[in-house]
Design a binder for these strands. Structure first.
Lengths: 121, 121
DNA sequence: ATTCGATATGTTTAACCGTACATAACGAAT
DNA sequence: ATTCGTTATGTACGGTTAAACATATCGAAT
């Protein structure tokens, strides 16, 4: 299975309310948190400052009225973070939207690319 | 026919090359130019400075290797602008992608909305 | 030659946004 | 009590971006 190309193609930004949106950045962040188990590690993996990562998460938690990311401080594992059931649902839904949208516009995307000049880097 | 909601919903950003992208802003700009016949008028209609509008157009013209917008200076009509055949194609393709993507993700979008708290503005 | 609104372009200013830096709290384990 | 890496939060700095402002040019018509 060939991995999805994340540098080019269609990017989806879901605007739930005028001030509430979910795009590739937040989705990737959720995914990284799921994989790494920590906000800090996710941020590092994405080249994003911890503060920014935390801010985005806080924003999502507030927007959805319920946390998408749960956190723990201190302790044996020195604290960490993970996705709540809602967080997992949101991530899954977003990825599915990406897939479906990508499939739906494949033809037009190809046609659009044909209009581009030959690349000679 | 109910007009499309442009404040919420899915927004599509097509990344052709790492530095070449087409999103809602440029698409709307192309459409406004088609309708108004002028860069300046299009900018005014969108609350966008002439300079920014012109810059975006120039960017597109360069990116696609051929102009999407043609312009004339001076003369009886004091100059103006319009879409080239390529420009029309690009706009049409983008709108079609929006439509198809929107249709494709309708279900997930609804599910995602259900996760949002009731809005009490 | 003047006038019109539009294109074309440069320069300066202001605002925003994210990073960098700094600090405190956390709590299980030792 | 100390230590660990992390969460949590505030403040200052820097870079990017768009807006604001300023000209210059265009060319048909008068």
């Amino acid at each position: 299975m060939k991995p999805r190309n994340r540098t080019t193609g269609a990017r989806l930004r879901i605007v739930l309310e005028p001030e509430i949106a979910l795009g590739p950045g937040k989705a990737d962040l959720l995914e990284e948190i799921e994989q790494t188990g920590s906000i800090a590690a996710a941020g590092r993996a994405m080249g994003m400052s911890y503060k920014r990562a935390w801010s985005l998460i806080e924003e999502m938690n507030v927007d959805f009225g319920t946390p998408l990311v749960h956190t723990t401080k201190g302790g044996k594992s020195y604290g960490g973070a993970g996705l709540t059931p809602t967080g997992k649902k949101v991530l899954t839904l977003y990825r599915r939207m990406e897939d479906k949208a990508g499939d739906a516009i494949r033809g037009e995307l190809k046609a659009l690319r044909k209009l581009l000049p030959d690349i000679a880097d």
